[in-house]
C-alpha cells in the first residue's frame, strides 16, 4: 500500500461525485454530523449502530456487514471513499473495518470533513438514493486485528504504540478531553508502549503529514521498523488512524489495530499497567 493507493484529495472527490463506481461514505464520531450537511452523493454509516454488535462488545458479523452494505447500495467492485470529522478518526476506523472484511478498493479523503469545510467546499442536506446490491464480505482478516492475549504477549517484544494524548497515556486523563471522563477501571498505559499521539501524524487541517516526516516521528518515538506493531487507543478508532499511517501510507508490514484498546486493557484483572510519562519495564 502507499499514499497514492489509499488516499484521495478533495479535488479528486469533487471530480468523482457522480462517478457510479465510487461510493462516498461519511463516518463521524458525532453521528448527527451527516444530517446537518454532507458532501453531495455521500451516504452515512453510524459507527455506534451500523458497525457495532448491539448486544456483545464486538463488530457486526460478516453476514450483518453484508446485509448492511447490500441495503445501503455498496457493491464489491465499488471504490469506497471514506471521510469524517475529527481528522478522519472514525473514517479511518471504517477504512480499517472495510479492510478487515476484505473490501478490495477503499480510500480515505485526506483531511476529511474538516479540510473540506475549511476549504469552504459545498455541503448539502439532500439525501442520495442508491439501489440495493448483493454484497459479499470476506472472513475477518486477523492479520490486522489484535486481541488482548496477543497484546499482553507483545509487552517488551514487539512495538506497542499508544496513540492517545500524553495525559491519557500517563494516566492523568481517562478519555479524550472532549468527552466526559469515564470508562476503564484503571488509568495508565501498557508497559513498554511508546506514546505517539495520533495527532502527530496530521497537520492542523487534518491532512496527513509527508512520508519522511511520518517516518521520523515514529522512529524518534522508538518504533523499531523490523518488528511487528500493535497500535491502541481508548476504543480503537484513533489507533485506526495510526494503523492507516503505518500500514497504508508507509507500507509497513504486520501492523495491527487493538480495537479493545484501553477500555478493555485498563479493565483486565492481573495485567501490568504503567503510569506516568515513562514507557515502563516489561
Amino acid at each position: 500500500m502507499s499514499r497514492e493507493s489509499s488516499l484521495v484529495n478533495a479535488q479528486w472527490v469533487e471530480d468523482n461525485l457522480d462517478n457510479e463506481k465510487v461510493v462516498l461514505i461519511e463516518v463521524d464520531e458525532d453521528t448527527t454530523s451527516y444530517d446537518k450537511g454532507h458532501i453531495r452523493t455521500a451516504i452515512k454509516l453510524d459507527w455506534t449502530t451500523d458497525l457495532q454488535d448491539q448486544v456483545r462488545r464486538d463488530f457486526v458479523s460478516k453476514e450483518q456487514f453484508e446485509a448492511l452494505l447490500s441495503e445501503r447500495g455498496v457493491a464489491n467492485d465499488h471504490t469506497v471513499v471514506l471521510y469524517g470529522g475529527n481528522n478522519n478518526w472514525f473514517a479511518a476506523y471504517a477504512y480499517w473495518y472495510f479492510t478487515l472484511y476484505g473490501h478490495a478498493d477503499v480510500k480515505l479523503l485526506d483531511g476529511g470533513r474538516k479540510k473540506w469545510e475549511l476549504d469552504s467546499r459545498e455541503l448539502t442536506d439532500e439525501l442520495p438514493t442508491r439501489a440495493a446490491t448483493t454484497y459479499t464480505a470476506q472472513e475477518q482478516d486477523h492479520t490486522i486485528r489484535a486481541f488482548r492475549d496477543e497484546v499482553v504477549e507483545s509487552i517488551g517484544t514487539q512495538n506497542l504504540v499508544d496513540v492517545r494524548s500524553p495525559d491519557e497515556y500517563a494516566g492523568r486523563l481517562l478519555a479524550p478531553a472532549h468527552l466526559p471522563q469515564e470508562q476503564a477501571q484503571r488509568a495508565g498505559h501498557i508497559p513498554t508502549a511508546a506514546n505517539v499521539p495520533w495527532s502527530k501524524a496530521a497537520n492542523d487541517d487534518g491532512t496527513f503529514r509527508a512520508d519522511d516526516e511520518l517516518k521520523e516521528i515514529y522512529t524518534e518515538a522508538g518504533v523499531n521498523w523490523d518488528k511487528d506493531t500493535i497500535a491502541y487507543c481508548r476504543i480503537g478508532e484513533r489507533s485506526s488512524h495510526t494503523w492507516f499511517v503505518l500500514k497504508e501510507i508507509l507500507g509497513q508490514e504486520n501492523v495491527k489495530n487493538y480495537d479493545g484498546s484501553w477500555t478493555e486493557y485498563g479493565s483486565l484483572v492481573g495485567v501490568p499497567v504503567a503510569i506516568g510519562d515513562e514507557a515502563g519495564e516489561a
Binding site: 481528522n87 494524548s165 500524553p166 472532549h178 495527532s199 502527530k200
Partner: peptide
C-alpha cells in the same frame, strides 16, 4: 501537544472536559 478537537455548534459553542 494536541489533546482534543471539536467542531463548533450552529451557535458557535464548544466544550472540553479537560484536567
Amino acid at each position: 501537544e494536541f489533546t482534543a478537537e471539536v467542531p463548533t455548534s450552529a451557535s458557535g459553542h464548544f466544550r472540553f472536559f479537560a484536567g
